[in-house]
Amino acid sequence: MLMGAEHEGWQGFQHTGWASLEAVRERLDAGADPNVGWHWMPPLHDAAENGTPEVVAELAARVDDVDVLVDGRSALWRAVHAGKPGNAQALLDAGADPVRPMMSGWSPARLSLVTGNVIPSGEVLTEQERALIADRDRMIAAIGDFPEYDGFSIACVGGIDAAEATRRLNAYVVPDDELPDLGDWYEEPFEDDTELAMGVTDVPGGCVVVQPWYFNASSTDVMRRLSAGTVAYGMYANPKSGDQGSSHRDGEVVGWDLHPGGAPAEDDGTPGVLLAHLYDGEAVAYCCAYAGLRPVDNKAFTEPDRWLLLPDIDFWRS
């Protein structure tokens, strides 16, 4: 929906258009405002993520403020986050400030230290941040091609093992000789108890609870119990609306209606912005990293060590 006449010059302009200097110049020469797009993101910000250095340079020469912040970040920050070093250099050449404070302590220059295209500055990373960065590729490789489907839920819990998680959930451990055929998770293998059935597995740093067929592993009461005295991140891979996350600490909700694997938010906090940058598009790995888990493979999600039946509880009790 257009918000006013100033938006009309960019109406219908697609993300792919930022790759064409000719198309951008045609719009600008016809009166399109270089400062205001026809949706929420200004043209320079959009081009920083999706365009070419030539387009970025053209827009940067025409805008009122090359460092204007939208959602707490500048166009230069977006170029660094998107892995577009040419676009970043075009913005630097246009006078963008690489050390302007933003995004919970992650200036564009500081964020660039996470990438292979460093913007020279006096910014530094902490030892803990360097460790998280070093483990990113290993984590994603370990989780591999999971998930291959939606509709599952997980709880990544730091600092406790599967035995303690079982105790906190007051769950019954299903003996191997009582396990149903788990070859097809979509067939509700536990029949009437399927909503109460979850797998749990020890991983370095804690444990993973997974429910392949429902959202209950990430439900309020399960997360509240599991996170007592520690931290846990839950996610439901909603087939209709995408990945839905929540974070709990010491039995209390910290964040709700979150989007693991999504773009960083300015209020994520210093560690949160880093994790969101590192695991952009990698929702399950993000959940693990948030809780401090370091799985060596994806068996916790695909072949749990033990199966539990939970008591008939109100999963969404606060």
Rank of each mutant, 00 (worst) to 15 (best):
P43Y: 09
L21Q: 06
P264Q: 06
E127C: 13
P189R: 13
G37P: 07
A285I: 01
E6S: 14
N170I: 01
F13K: 01
L2N: 06
D193I: 14
G292H: 02
M223T: 08
G199S: 03
M102H: 01
T126K: 01
R78T: 04
F13T: 03
A47C: 12
R224K: 02
P189A: 14
G199R: 08
S153G: 03
V124A: 03
V174R: 09
G269H: 02
A265K: 11
P85D: 08
G245I: 09
L28P: 02
P204R: 03
G9Y: 11
R249K: 13
G105S: 00
V118T: 00
A134P: 12
H248W: 15
V66P: 12
G51N: 13
G9P: 13
G31S: 05
W106F: 15
L69V: 13
P204D: 04
G51R: 10
E123G: 00
M41N: 02
H39M: 11
F190H: 07
W213C: 15
Q211W: 14
P311L: 07
G151V: 09
R130E: 10
L258I: 01
F13N: 01
R25I: 09
P204C: 02
L293S: 02
Y236F: 10
V296I: 12
P239L: 07
E6K: 10
A23Q: 15
P264W: 11
D65G: 13
S121F: 08
G255H: 03
E127L: 14
A61P: 15
V68E: 15
V200A: 06
S247M: 12
A61Y: 14
P85Q: 10
